[in-house]
Design a protein around this nucleic acid. Sequence first.
RNA 1: GGCGAGUUCGUCUAGCGGUCCAGGACACUGGCCUCUCACGCCGGUAACACGGGUUCGAGUCCCGUACUCGCUACCA
Length: 487
Amino acid sequence: MSENQRPVRVRFAPSPTGYLHVGGARTAIYNYFYAKAMGGTFYLRIEDTDRKRYNEAALHDLLRDLKWLGLQWDEGPEVGGPYGPYFQSERLDIYARAVESLLEKGLAYYCFCTEERLEEVRKAQEASGQAVSGYDRKCRDLPLAEARARLAAGEKAVVRFKIPLDGVTGFVDQIRGSIETRNALLDDLVILKRDKYPTYHLASVVDDHAMGTTHVLRGDEWISSTPKHVLLYQALGWEPPVFCHLPVILAAGGGKLSKRKGAASVGDFRDQGYLPETLVNFLALLGWNPGDDREVMSLDEMIAKFTLDRINPKAAAFDEKKLEWMNGQHIHRKDTAWLAQYLRENLEAQGVDTASVSQEKMIGIADLLKTRVHFLKDLPGMSRYFFIAPETYDEKARTKAWGPGSRQTTTAVREQLAQLSSFDAPSIEQAFMSVCTRLDAKLGVLVHPVRLAVSGVAAGPGLFELLEVIGQAEVLRRLEIAEPLMG
RNA sequence: GGCGAGUUCGUCUAGCGGUCCAGGACACUGGCCUCUCACGCCGGUAACACGGGUUCGAGUCCCGUACUCGCUACCA
């Protein structure tokens, strides 16, 4: 069966009941990648058929988070499209028609069993240790006319799908191969609930067909029900899409990912300071690899290499250490002007007035610091001393760097620096060197006290570059302030 | 319980019968660079769940066992 002539249409179909989980995010990522890689369409469909669990805020956050990740959908909420509506709650008549046709063909039936009775049946089966559990099909052979009469009389019913009593149903999963199940093991599933809303099984099958879906990439919790879906496609006379079930994402020690174990939702990671490109890159690599050793990649680079057959069927644990490393890598690759802009905006919150600071200086700072942070939000605090003279000097560094003689060498350096007509890193280095020879001292002896005096801390970018960015007058001023403190 | 899926270094993974005494990345660690901290570079420790087959040959194929996860809802 090679009907891959049809343009690829894939979807992300979340249920707006909670926050966008990283597992869901990765499902969205793979769908998005596949659509883009194949020149197809990525649409967003909201599966809001569970009225009890529906959550307006969750829907809002979901759309926000997908956009933040950069996974803009081609069709769906807010943007519309030719296959709408994209909310299942607005497609009830479409499901009703499908149900009606199944009913007419005798492939589905009304079931009047109460939840209490179903519960009893379940209990009885458990007690007898029966192999096959599930609905006992009491209403399966109820004549349609009789059922309709009872409905007309005011009785309530659900609609169940008639699973063939024997035979085998299978499908080919794109990443796992052939999967088969004996029909006898399958339950006559409910397809239309008492409240006239469809269940997931019916709604997803009807919509995936109606919306022209060519490939279904979804979580592997659906593997067990896929044969039921295949049977539904057959009953409705439709060609099933290609299925591809994605493995779950586990917490670091194994087990479910949760807020308690750190973070679980896209929002959590955003709040922690991760870049969207980091999260997409990392999540994509959790269960997929590009076929070479590349790891740090942009969205476009990943799309260019994305294929379904390189998805791994194995569940993967989420390693935050690697995520953090990767975030540093992405910050490193960020455009310096962009980082400078970020700095400017976030420095205000630190009480630093950046209005008078030149763009050139901002870029210089961003350039010096970008290999030194794993999180963007650490940048403003780390750059503080470029704008404001240190109010305190790191205590530990002080005892180490400011020893006997520090004052003398620092003064010598200051006097040398004061004579510079051009205050750039190479000239500054030369100045230091000449003091070194004159005093017969090693460079480190001069550098450490000066660094602490100027920045207040022991670690940071190369001192010459740092001094250049701070500027001659300010450097001299800071040195003068610190010298008396050196003892 | 039944059914299904999965199982390579601590973690993410490469591997699609011989080129694997198993390769890359994170973490850990030794070193280089160097004015410090990062970055970068060079090196090290560390894995084919177990047991049977098939084969001249198995991490790679088959069958069991174990473990993990999922489904077994008028939730998705």
